[in-house]
Write a protein that binds this DNA or RNA. Sequence first.
DNA 1: CCAGGCGACTGGTCTAGGCCAGTATGTGCC
DNA 2: GGCACATACTGGCCTAGACCAGTCGCCTGG
Lengths: 248, 248
Amino acid sequence: MAITGSGISLDRLSPTPIFQQIKSILEGAIASGELAAHQRIPSERELSAALGVSRMTLRQALLELMSDGILYSRSGKGTYVAERKIEQPLQRLSSFTQDIASRGMRPASQVLAQELLSAPLELAGALQIPPGSEIVRIRRLRLADEQPLALETSHLPHSLCPGVLNCDLTRTSLYEVLRTEYGVVLGSAKQTIEASQPVAEERLLLRLPEGVPVLRIHRLTSTVDGRLVEFVRSVYRGDRYQLHVELR
Amino acid sequence: MAITGSGISLDRLSPTPIFQQIKSILEGAIASGELAAHQRIPSERELSAALGVSRMTLRQALLELMSDGILYSRSGKGTYVAERKIEQPLQRLSSFTQDIASRGMRPASQVLAQELLSAPLELAGALQIPPGSEIVRIRRLRLADEQPLALETSHLPHSLCPGVLNCDLTRTSLYEVLRTEYGVVLGSAKQTIEASQPVAEERLLLRLPEGVPVLRIHRLTSTVDGRLVEFVRSVYRGDRYQLHVELR
DNA sequence: CCAGGCGACTGGTCTAGGCCAGTATGTGCC
DNA sequence: GGCACATACTGGCCTAGACCAGTCGCCTGG
């Protein structure tokens, strides 16, 4: 198989951990269809030897992919690619990048704005910071398989992520940067969801045909220890996106 | 602290893995309040020494507790107990009646159809019953404060609720009837949500102004013991209804 | 021909170390 | 007093082994 055979290799000097790199490689292979559902992947010993890492390190990557529902394993038999479950996401708090990847598409972004501004009253209230504090505003057109899918505007307190203005968020998940660069681990979020008509600018950017409505989603995200991290306004194309929720 | 100090010990002969036992001990200590929110727990090296396990094993327990949102860690500082998830039913499975009442409005219904039909293939598949089985179909216009808000079409296996055809569902919640008359206790549901344009009939019944989109929600509900109970198609007015969701 | 057993695999768990980058705290110099 | 530096912690990541219990195929004895 390609992963063991090809020249894919790890960057041991990179600041991103080895097991993260392995996760990305496997996720890519699954998203691209190189690894199909229920297909067996090479054994842990085989893979770790091929990649030149210890089995424990390889295993850390596999375990996370399993807990994400992307792989499953049978003791004594092997590790397999899970069925692509459309139903899966969104009991969990996932980034656009994860969400789209788990639907078997390639996520990407086009950064429209990445700037500092002074928090207006309503934003400061939502994020519980003093009005006028520095806020990072990141506006991205979100693509799935190169097609515009959503328009997303994130607001974060600048104190939480100084220097994020210089990050290239075209290919990288903002949540990934928050976690690896700033140690910000997201815990929970509150969302409100509504159907609405797009405004002219949204219709233009999303290349929306006449009459197609959008899903407008507001999200307030906090860390595991209760600090408010970001307020996001998203606008999803109604004809290409479905939200999945599990209730209890 | 109690965990390092007390006589709590691990059963190395037990078939349950050591790291599982450690998880249980910590979960117990947190549940009992012995460890409070934001309290620092002993360092990994300390804990592993106290329990007589290797640091990697202890770490496996901690990592799982972190991914469950029960602990969080700060690199270089320590590991802490996460904020208690107070909102226990964070994704409460609620009926339209409950939902609207909790928003401070008066719920009501207008029954458009309440009939028996033979399960078409797709419906039988969704509910996992033999095609052609008897299905109860209940179609209701849902009102909030006497204004049309949603159009809801429920499908239930007739075997589950014989006689439900004779119930007056104008003022009563269907879920209430299921629970009190048939002992059917709902456990979980999967929903898909999308924005779309209403069709002519929907526009008419919901008295929708031109150009207002709708929120289309499909819900598959099952009991606590895993039996599939109902498949519902709902259409909510986009200009009057917002969905609230919490993620973790 | 079949049954049973052996051996070669699998993932699951565990050990005992190692190095790194963050984070405090004290200490001594300016 | 205040600043730089050393030190001793922390969690994060990685290694190179080990043993166990499943799983499956092959081979041998009946």
